[in-house]
Design a protein around this nucleic acid. Structure first.
Lengths: 332, 332
DNA sequence: TTCTCGCATCTAAACGATTAGATAATGCAT
DNA sequence: ATGCATTATCTAATCGTTTAGATGCGAGAA
């Protein structure tokens, strides 16, 4: 039972009550580096229980130089793709008893650096970097390397170097989307890319480019619903809306849907749309969005495992095409 | 300039270099409790700069019993309403140099308690509780009160007691929505409530009930797009879709939009819809969603100010009706 | 000149844990 | 009985700050 209140019990309090030194108490609490006699262990445990002892993580952190906190640098917390990723990272970390500090960079490299500085100041044990573009992510990892804090890139990042990168099979996703739209009879398939798509996520566009033939240029806009929405309206105004479109992200795809609706352009009748992320949101749009579903949970788990050195890099499940209505399929 | 690497510089290092004691260095760094001669201060600052000194927050926390970290308990990080709230809370906290620990409870009281335990173990300086239902929030605040950690309810919570509550003007929002739908000629206006709407957010439903007259029962479903989507499809199957509907949350309203689309029910032609949150997402749905926009940023800022004791409770800006297409208005 | 203030600094004790090294207690072989 | 491992425990240094109390010093008052 926990004591009424007073000051919280310390190791020394427990030791006193159990009639031992603080050392043995510590050994018991941590299954410490040294063994403790069974009888003593029992007394200590009882004393700790009676006092409602909770180890002071701060003191522990000071002495052992590890905080049990991991920082997550997020490109955009309001983008459901990153939001879902964040939730899964948090859960995986919780599974290892780690807490997560979260920082939202709003796609700004500046803010991203700032966040990392603050995370490092807070002595995080590691960093998960979920950045939209690979270069910004590299910057951040370099920052972390100086004080020797391990890092992992999550969704995008440079493949080179010692910082591991966990990303979906972007190429397969695009090929699946292309194949599906072709099966619907589409010949000309447009691609909506992000403003700066470096790294593996840029492969999405590259794969499309090589499939679309030489000279094909993607549409581009920021990774936001608002921009994609506005883009489609502009296209509609000059009657330049493509018959089929793959959006690099669900966020953009959803903007396309709303823009098309506002401009009176039927989806999928006049334009078929596929998103490449597979966020939870995509199931509940009007019309429902066909996507290539990335294994978000597996990705998050793997990133955490890698960061904590708990598991070797295993192959991720592939992105699977989830057919819904925006591509022209019937509701499933 | 920061030193190449080595071990990070400590207070003692700076003191040695500046030829002073650690005490004065501390006084300088913190504009400490005691004054320091201008010349000395300059030397200390120079030494700190040269060594790239960064205070060790852990040690500081141990000694001064304050961590500079605030925990945010979130009902559902994937709900854009809470997501936006979280982002604003983070920004406000950053303005005061505080870091934010985030925890996602997934609407579960159990997980909520769990999170708070872990936050308290991490010695947070305070707790912002953004819970969907008031009772769960009260639980959590009680937990925090034991070790004397201050807390603030953000979106919903019990109005009683010493824990402050920051919430929008829910009643005004509903009245505005009702008035607007009536102006569109609607007489029978349905209401889609959450599963357990206690506290001020429950007022949304209550206001509707008193306006709708005795015996009026709201529709109910979980705060998720999926459930609202499914609900509308069921209603459509037995031809029971209302002509106008106010959804307690945007999340539900968006689900209604997608369910209606799937069931072939035109919005706003056959059913007019208004959401009561005003999330960023609501601007980019198909059709665009009319909402009563809550002052999310102001709410977050006020919660943080209250928590940190920086400001007196000021009146929040009112929720303003943002007319878009789902209610029958033309695109603005 | 001597005594007092005040100011600028210094010394050293916390904060609450971890853990290497010293010490005590036991068993066993001699 | 004596010595030597082995095991169980204790002592105390340490992590990097903060801050109350002690100290030193120069200026003004007597």
């Amino acid at each position: 039972m926990s004591e009424p209140a007073g000051k919280p019990a310390t190791l020394a309090d427990v030791a006193r009550r159990a009639g031992t030194s603080t050392a043995v108490v510590s050994y018991v609490i941590n299954d410490g580096p040294r063994p403790v006699a069974a009888a003593t262990r029992a007394r200590v445990l009882a004393a700790a229980e009676e006092l409602g002892y909770r180890p002071n993580r701060i003191a522990r952190a000071l002495r052992s130089r590890t905080t049990g906190v991991v920082g997550l640098v997020l490109a955009d917390a309001l983008n459901p793709y990153f939001g879902a990723l964040a939730r899964h990272v948090e859960q995986s970390l919780a599974g290892y008893g780690r807490l997560m500090l979260i920082g939202n960079a709003g796609y700004s490299a500046e803010r991203q650096r700032h966040l990392v500085e603050r995370f490092l100041a807070a002595q995080v044990d590691g960093l998960v970097i979920a950045s939209a573009d690979a270069d910004g992510a590299a910057d951040v990892a370099a920052l972390a390397r100086t004080p020797g804090v391990p890092a992992v890139y999550l969704h995008n990042g440079p493949a080179t170097g010692d910082t591991p990168l966990v990303t979906a099979d972007n190429e397969h996703a695009v090929r699946a989307a292309l194949a599906h739209l072709r099966a619907h009879g589409h010949r000309d398939i447009a691609f909506l890319a992000g403003p700066r798509d470096t790294g593996p996520v840029g492969r999405r566009r590259e794969v499309w480019e090589s499939a679309a033939g030489p000279g094909a240029a993607p549409l581009r806009c920021a990774y936001s619903r608002a921009e994609a929405d506005a883009l489609i309206r502009r296209l509609a105004a000059r009657d330049a809306v493509p018959r089929a479109l793959i959006a690099a992200t669900d966020e953009q795809a959803i903007g396309v849907l709303s823009g098309a609706c506002a401009a009176g352009i039927p989806v999928p009748g006049r334009i078929a749309v596929i998103g490449l992320d597979g966020t939870p949101d995509s199931a509940h749009t009007a019309p429902s969005l066909t996507v290539t579903g990335q294994p978000l949970e597996a990705m998050a788990r793997q990133a955490v495992d890698l960061l904590l050195g708990r598991a070797a890099p295993a192959p991720l499940p592939p992105a699977t095409l989830v057919t819904r209505r925006s591509c022209g399929c019937a509701e499933s």
